[in-house]
């Protein structure tokens, strides 16, 4: 069975007058409905291009993208289908300031439903619901410019939730936030996925965030390099480091210890588990010596 998002033989290149730069090469991906997939890659790996192709902002050179039954890669996608796609698939961008359109938070959240031509009463209901869901009801009448980065991103997410989407794509949505804003947004992302069953595609270069996903896809040089559960992907420390991705400290520590011949597993993504493994090993060696 095909997944909610299905990408087949996708290739795309940016064309300039003189040169052509290949951004994605022959990508094949199936993303199940309701899953939480992290797309990892360093700058220029093509991961943001993938997001733009998924929301029909760019049209692929080759291959096919189908999202929820809509053939997104079709260059002659009708306007109704395009609107339906954007309603179903919400995009959250990197800069929180550049995606808010209104001077009042609740007006901004209402922007999407207003564009869809929904009844005023229903818009009001959806806006209140989305604000409550994001925990920002108390800021409903505030100006977005007075909010913190994390709060702004939550306003942006609320604006998309008011359109009742099925899938959300976060395109480096946490890259410009401070650590507390990042935590705020990641908690929201998990809530959307686990409680509301929304399919989440989280594009990032942050390992801790990728480790929260059900599945991690590593893209390098426009190709899928690794694909699997966080444990599977992060056990390939050398492969990741070769493409300029740093693994988490706990993963790296156990990897280095394992390389020295000590019996530690690869792909540990939990600091506490890491600490426990080391502690158990230490206790065992102490006991053996006695």
């Amino acid at each position: 069975m095909a997944g909610y998002i299905s990408i087949r033989n996708l290739s795309f290149s940016y064309k300039d007058d003189q040169k052509e730069q290949q951004a994605l090469k022959n990508i094949n991906l199936e993303i199940e409905k309701g899953s939480f997939v992290a797309v990892l890659g360093h700058n220029g790996s093509g991961k943001s291009t993938l997001a733009k192709l998924l929301s029909a902002i760019l049209v692929p050179d080759e291959g096919e993208i189908v999202v929820g039954g809509l053939k997104v890669s079709d260059p002659e996608l009708s306007e109704e289908d395009l609107l339906e796609l954007h309603r179903r698939v919400g995009m959250v961008f990197q800069n929180p300031d550049n995606q808010l359109v209104a001077t009042v938070v609740e007006e901004d959240v209402a922007f999407g439903p207003e564009n869809l031509g929904i009844e005023p009463k229903e818009i009001r209901r959806r806006v209140d619901e989305a604000l409550a869901l994001m925990g920002i009801s108390e800021y409903a009448r505030h100006a977005p410019s007075k909010l913190s980065g994390g709060q702004k991103q939550r306003v942006a997410i609320a604006g998309l939730m008011a359109m009742l989407p099925e899938c959300m794509i976060f395109d480096e949505a946490t890259a410009m936030l401070d650590p507390s804003g990042r935590k705020e947004v990641m908690a929201t992302v998990l809530k959307l996925n686990k409680e509301l069953g929304i399919t989440v595609l989280h594009i990032t270069h942050n390992m801790e965030e990728a480790a929260m996903a059900d599945r991690v896809v590593v893209i390098d040089d426009g190709q899928v390099l690794l694909d699997g559960t966080p444990e599977q992907v992060f056990s390939k420390v050398q492969t990741l480091q070769a493409v300029g991705l740093d693994v988490m400290q706990c993963t790296e520590l156990l990897h280095e210890l394992a390389c020295c011949g000590l019996p530690f597993p690869e792909g540990v993504i939990d600091e506490e588990q890491c600490a426990r493994l080391i502690y158990e090993y230490y206790m065992k060696t102490v006991k053996d010596k006695k």
Binding site: S55, R87, F93, E114, I118, E119
Partner: peptide, 20 residues
């Protein structure tokens, strides 16, 4: 970026638009 974000939020001009 704003134009992109607006397009992704289904903005397509004043046609068929409602107000909260």
């Amino acid at each position: 970026e704003l134009a992109l974000a607006m397009e992704c939020r289904c903005y397509h001009g004043g046609k068929g638009r409602t107000k909260m």
